[in-house]
Design a binder for these strands. Structure first.
Lengths: 247, 247
DNA sequence: CGAGGGTTTGAAGTGCATCAAATAGTGTGG
DNA sequence: CCACACTATTTGATGCACTTCAAACCCTCG
């Protein structure tokens, strides 16, 4: 859920952008064009709320650039962050299966470019274009897989280990030895994303720093040894590193 | 994820059983027959392991009766229970999207009747029978929805509240006032299912008992006031009761 | 009746949250 | 370019929730 978009993503045409996403891959060009015609591009600033839980759902969203927080709130004001999505990722599409209501809220957390497409069009093409149903099915199944890993993490890992896992997903796969990474968004938001409080995040990151030899400078972190981080983190997870390869 | 099968489920013919599941509903009869022909019925005793994580996946499973635990294990032996499934529920089908390997282990926790069907047949019909793809898509999307609620619970609810939610799902929807319910499986397993230790479960249930006036007799529990339980539990959740209506 | 697993209870420790306050960092208007 | 205002982050002190380890209890089944 943390993969970053290729640099060229935003620069290319809308149709070509769509074709490079999991949902529109290998679709008849006419279908992709149909979506591109009905699409609306929207530019949103930090803090803007795109929709809230239980809203009637009309659109689903593709992120071109930036970051969007997907979350739920309880009556008491506690917030559960479901996901934080970036370029090439979709959200809101699942409202098709929840009586056309969004089941979470979405808020922009950084300057963001979005593509809005009608859910009705998606529904139409799910029926009409079998490849689209297969694409969405594959996509949804993979999301479910990722989610169930996160459930496992919440249930059996410590805060420090969850942070380690988060950092590992930010390391380029090709890297051996060490890596220099950059936190993609607010530490406060990362904390919420990992199911902990900001104070806990701060302390747990400090612990990780001393335990596996990190250098931390604001939101830039250099990992001396990825192997050490893997050992620290992944031994307490059911999957072995790298665990995010959806082949 | 806790819905129980109608009593008549096991008694009916295999084809009719299939047709009453979300995956086979509204399918051409020829397709359902095709699955029924290739299906194997299997009877498994408590403790039997059906497959383990990373096994090559050949079958997906429908539960006719009994209970099956789906879980993952870490190197250290910690166990995360993904789900505990009963009659009319499927599992193993998602291996289609994870390179034909199961991504969790499955163990029978009570005398269980299963129907095994080849994943290859499912793959074939997903391509050939659009309604089947739509059915699986709807099913997967709903599972994802349920999962994300559980993630929320793990992140922001206390052990006691999670137990309250679990009990509420066992109450017949139609009930007003009070209800008498029966825990469907081991308390130890329920604890694991809810992401806590058996000791914690025991103590948290005792707390719930005194806080919302339960009567507990072994695995039989009577709830004096469902409303009280709802207030205790659902105010700390983003969805309002009843939250499991997938319309 | 006895063995073994499930369940409860107790005592002590750990991890995370909470509340409060200090510090660092960022963007703004002057 | 600087000072201020505001937010993000860190740090400290304390409390609660959950776990751990250990032992007792209970229940079922051979």
């Amino acid at each position: 859920m943390l993969a970053l978009a290729p640099r060229s993503f935003v620069a290319s045409s809308l149709v070509s952008q769509l074709q490079r996403t999991s949902l529109f891959a290998n679709l008849p060009e006419s279908a992709v064009n149909h979506f591109a015609e009905k699409a609306q591009v929207k530019h949103a600033a930090k803090g803007q709320v795109l929709f809230i839980q239980d809203d009637e759902a009309e659109w689903f969203y593709l992120v071109q650039s930036g970051w969007v927080k997907l979350f739920r709130e309880t009556l008491e004001g506690a917030e559960a962050v479901i996901d934080v999505v970036s370029a090439t990722h979709f959200f809101g599409e699942h409202a098709l299966f929840t009586a056309d209501r969004y089941s979470y809220s979405a808020q922009v957390v950084d300057k963001t470019h979005l593509v809005l497409m009608p859910l009705s069009l998606l529904r139409y093409h799910l029926e009409k274009t079998p490849q689209m149903a297969m694409n969405l099915l594959r996509h949804t199944a993979q999301q479910r897989e990722l989610q169930s890993r996160e459930m496992e993490h919440l249930a059996i890992q410590t805060a420090t280990q969850r942070i380690g896992c988060f950092l590992l997903k930010l390391c380029p796969d090709t890297t051996h030895g060490g890596a220099q990474i950059h936190l993609p968004y607010d530490k406060t938001l990362i904390a919420a994303r990992l199911g902990m409080k900001p104070e806990t995040f701060s302390r747990a990151l400090a612990k990780l720093k001393s335990d596996v030899n990190l250098k931390i400078n604001g939101s830039t972190i250099s990992v001396a040894s990825i192997a050490a981080l893997v050992e620290y983190t992944c031994n307490h997870c059911s999957s072995s590193f790298p665990c995010d390869d959806n082949s």
